[in-house]
Design a protein around this nucleic acid. Sequence first.
RNA 1: GGGGGCGUAGCUCAGUUGGAUAGAGCAUCAGCCUUCUAAGCUGAGGGUCACAGGUUCGAUCCCUGUCGCCCCUACCA
Length: 660
Amino acid sequence: MFQEIEAKLAETVERTLREKFGLKLKVSLEQPKQSSFGELSIPIAFQLARQLRKAPRQIAEELAAPLTHVREVAAVEIAGNGYINVRLQRGAYAASLVKGSGVPREQTGSAQKIIVEHTNINPNKAAHIGHLRNAVLGDTFARMLRRRGRYVEVQNYIDNTGVQVADVVVGFHFLQKKSPVDVKAMLDDPQIRFDYFCWDLYARTSAYYGENPEALGWRAETLHAIEADEGDLAELGHIVADAIVQAHLKTMYRLGIEYDLLPRESEILHLQFWATAFELLKERKAIYFEEAGKNKGCWVMPASAFRSTAQDSDEGAESEEDSKVIVRSNGTVTYVGKDIAYQLWKFGLLGKDFFYRRWSQYPDGHEVWVTTDQPSPNESPAFGRGAKVFNVIDSRQSYLQDVVVAGLRALNFPEQADASVHFSYEMVALTPRTCLEMGIALSEEDKRRAYVEVSGRKGLGVKADDLIDKLIETALAEVEDRHPQADPQERRTVAEQIAVGALRYFMLKFTRNSVIAFDFHEALSFEGETGPYAQYAAVRAEQILRQYVERGGVMPDFEKVLTQEVLDRHLETEDLWQLLWLASKADSAVERAISSGEPAHVAKYAFQLAQEFNAFYHDYRVIGEKNTERQAVLLWLTRYAREQLLGTFQVLGIDQPPYM
RNA sequence: GGGGGCGUAGCUCAGUUGGAUAGAGCAUCAGCCUUCUAAGCUGAGGGUCACAGGUUCGAUCCCUGUCGCCCCUACCA
């Protein structure tokens, strides 16, 4: 409803501009700084002032006149030097919401597929909080797109043949002398938390390399075996990667995060995606063979392809220094090269496809598929062939992502290059205080920093499952305290919902390019701008509606009782109108978050709506209201605000507990 | 050296293509629970939007410079 009005007003002004001034302009509306100025504001007169050589106020007046004829508009005022402020017919606006609520939203998307790739954790150890930020951001963004009717495919890329997996295999085979049978037995041992075991083993192996550099030969040997897919080392690689992927999926599912497809590096290798891409790159001259210099014998992409500022240096030699090696002099391909091939596949440009098989099924029936290199008898859904691709990858890799996009452009796929989005985000670090709490030794210099970077190689960091467990534990203590008589199993569920709400909100409240300095104290807080705060507001709303009925109240037939005239009368109360107005903007918040690429905007909106509802809760007694007409308004408003809040929760991946 | 990001209240952060009196949360202080659950509500204090120029009717936002912090800049993935 909000967006319809907004569009209608913009169109009206645009039409006036065309007819009166002969101008073709896109008009945008904004929220007035103060609610007393009205519901919507149009600042267009300012930017026209110079062009038309007229006072903004005069222009505003000419544009304002036709707006008064729009049915939903109550009044139009010129304020300040030339703002056009619009006040809406509150009753009419509310009445259409009364009628419309409960009706499914119309789809605004197209059939074009949007691929969102996120999580992408190396399958060699337990997930940590940095991975959570990635997954929560990606998952929320996918939910936002789906809410607005877009067709989304969620992929979680698995690098099961890389150095990180190899290092854990080295740990098992060379350091621990374990056979594939031994390691398989570990998977069945309930005493062993395999992903945690690998976390430590990975750190130990890395440390061993530090003391015994010659051991790096084991890594090379293992990588070679994994690539050839032969022998115990390769088998260990499969066992480790598959088990860890399973662990990651389980961890993410605790937060409600699901995937559609797990594309794996091993298939990219075995199906020779790179060979195909290599031919294409050579054929279209996107890369060239370096004959001399430090990159002699390599296939490289010139720096000019991905450096926008390369033109101001006219020394050709300098740019060669910056060019990116795609194929090493020993003939092996770099990660970026493979990534270009993979990105081509995502757009359906490679001319090759994976084979697929089911990996597992979520409790809700949704299936996850994985790539294979062998045809399978079962039909699989059609994967890939996206029209737009969002790669959720941390900002440290922006250089490599630039190279991938440049590769597409150099291959003469400008459309797909433009449709490749590096959905980047800053890392999650730890506050010095949290490091000390965890027993991580810090230098004096680090202690003075705002945050300290974690290191998976050293085994330093907060494991995702540990954090979730700790959040549940904290929430459970509070729930038990507040509801000593409630069913223990239900309390556990409530605590889990609160923990997930707290964690997801925490990961989303910061904008993407802000480094999160993770602090246990802050993350375990359930007060103020947190998920549980918002959940609490929803619980309160439900409480009102439930208890109203439990105490013998009959839910009014809102459509009949709440006529435009009735609504108009009661919505003169500013608080009530403001709550309604804010609640009606849920979809707009999601749309804005999509266009700006900031899921944080939705989180912020949920908090604001919760805040507004909590104020309402405090100021108005719904059940005790004597005037039945007013009570109907309050009941409906409670229900509507709750609906809008829950809809926003869904986008954020947050549940409303039955009680708190 | 080059590329990118950041600098807003004591702390952590928002600030929607430049617009009306720069906002939250935490922390501090002062109030509010026999009422639909206080994980809440109300109020107070706290700002040279790093600094200096420029563009503009108008700059936290755009441009230039300076200072400070962070990341990237492998024939590692």
